Simulated scan of single mutants.
Amino acid sequence: MDTEDTPGGTATEETKPTTWCPSGRADAPESVVLGVRSQSDASVTYLAAPTPAAELLPMIPANIEPTRVLRFASHCVSGCAHRSNNDCTLISKIQMLPAAGEPAVPRCHLRARCQWWRQTGATACQRCPAVSTAYHADDSLSTRVADPAVTPAQLQRWIDADHDAAASDSRA
């Protein structure tokens, strides 16, 4: 594998470094497995080294969505629905969600080239293990976070309204 196409690779002066999306597509040619998803709480345990997705995808049974068990990273592309200029709106929205306790910054082979790290630093890394690339129709908050059409401001208004409604319900 060409080091320029892997998260641990180094750029030469003639090449422009590529940032990587830690919520990438499994089917992208350069895709690597970032980690393995826990069955109990869906958190990610990161691999020590990048493993090409193409090597692991054939091992997943056909009736299991790969994003249910693995977390993928691939190139951050200009055509991504979550891209706004040079920023990722997905991590902006993920950071609006309450963190569970005091999450640690996990060890990760992607960090040196990670778009989320470059954009927001350690706070992105603290939320990253809880990010799911699998779609959950019954989770309206996750659906709104993942929807590229929902802006951070719209998400914040929805969170505030939902929080206000929950507070009213608890007083009733």
Rank of each mutant, 00 (worst) to 15 (best):
residue 105 V to T: 15
residue 105 V to I: 15
residue 105 V to Y: 05
residue 105 V to Q: 05
residue 105 V to D: 03
residue 105 V to E: 08
residue 105 V to L: 02
residue 106 P to W: 02
residue 106 P to Q: 04
residue 106 P to R: 05
residue 107 R to T: 13
residue 107 R to C: 00
residue 108 C to A: 11
residue 108 C to F: 02
residue 108 C to N: 15
residue 108 C to Y: 00
residue 108 C to P: 07
residue 108 C to D: 14
residue 109 H to K: 09
residue 109 H to N: 09
residue 109 H to P: 02
residue 109 H to C: 13
residue 109 H to I: 01
residue 109 H to S: 09
residue 110 L to P: 06
residue 110 L to K: 05
residue 110 L to N: 07
residue 111 R to K: 12
residue 111 R to L: 10
residue 111 R to I: 12
residue 111 R to V: 13
residue 111 R to N: 04
residue 111 R to H: 02
residue 112 A to T: 10
residue 112 A to S: 13
residue 112 A to F: 01
residue 113 R to S: 12
residue 113 R to K: 13
residue 113 R to M: 11
residue 113 R to G: 13
residue 113 R to T: 14
residue 113 R to Q: 09
residue 113 R to C: 12
residue 113 R to E: 07
residue 113 R to W: 07
residue 114 C to I: 10
residue 114 C to L: 10
residue 114 C to E: 09
residue 114 C to D: 08
residue 114 C to V: 06
residue 114 C to W: 03
residue 114 C to T: 12
residue 115 Q to V: 08
residue 115 Q to N: 01
residue 115 Q to C: 02
residue 116 W to Y: 15
residue 116 W to A: 11
residue 117 W to C: 05
residue 117 W to F: 11
residue 117 W to V: 08
residue 117 W to H: 08
residue 118 R to T: 09
residue 118 R to S: 07
residue 118 R to C: 00
residue 118 R to I: 01
residue 118 R to Y: 01
residue 119 Q to Y: 07
residue 119 Q to H: 08
residue 119 Q to G: 08
residue 119 Q to I: 05
residue 119 Q to W: 09
residue 119 Q to N: 03
residue 119 Q to V: 04
residue 120 T to S: 13
residue 120 T to W: 01
residue 120 T to E: 10
residue 120 T to P: 00
residue 120 T to K: 12
residue 120 T to A: 14
residue 120 T to G: 10
residue 120 T to R: 13
residue 121 G to Y: 04
residue 121 G to A: 07
residue 122 A to C: 02
residue 122 A to E: 15
residue 122 A to P: 09
residue 122 A to R: 14
residue 122 A to F: 00
residue 122 A to K: 15
residue 123 T to Y: 05
residue 123 T to D: 12
residue 123 T to N: 11
residue 123 T to R: 15
residue 123 T to V: 15
residue 124 A to F: 09
residue 124 A to E: 06
residue 124 A to H: 05
residue 124 A to G: 13
residue 125 C to D: 02
residue 125 C to H: 05
residue 125 C to F: 02
residue 125 C to K: 06
residue 126 Q to Y: 01
residue 126 Q to K: 11
residue 126 Q to I: 01
residue 127 R to W: 09
residue 127 R to C: 03
residue 127 R to Q: 14
residue 128 C to D: 04
residue 128 C to A: 12
residue 129 P to N: 06
residue 129 P to C: 03
residue 129 P to K: 12
residue 129 P to S: 03
residue 129 P to F: 03
residue 129 P to H: 06
residue 130 A to G: 07
residue 130 A to D: 14
residue 130 A to M: 12
residue 130 A to P: 00
residue 130 A to F: 14
residue 130 A to H: 12
residue 130 A to R: 13
residue 131 V to C: 12
residue 131 V to W: 10
residue 131 V to A: 02
residue 131 V to M: 08
residue 132 S to K: 14
residue 132 S to I: 00
residue 132 S to H: 11
residue 133 T to W: 00
residue 133 T to F: 00
residue 133 T to E: 12
residue 133 T to V: 04
residue 133 T to K: 08
residue 134 A to F: 14
residue 134 A to M: 13
residue 134 A to N: 01
residue 135 Y to I: 14
residue 136 H to W: 10
residue 136 H to C: 03
residue 136 H to P: 00
residue 136 H to E: 06
residue 136 H to S: 05
residue 136 H to M: 04
residue 137 A to T: 10
residue 137 A to K: 11
residue 137 A to L: 02
residue 138 D to H: 15
residue 138 D to S: 14
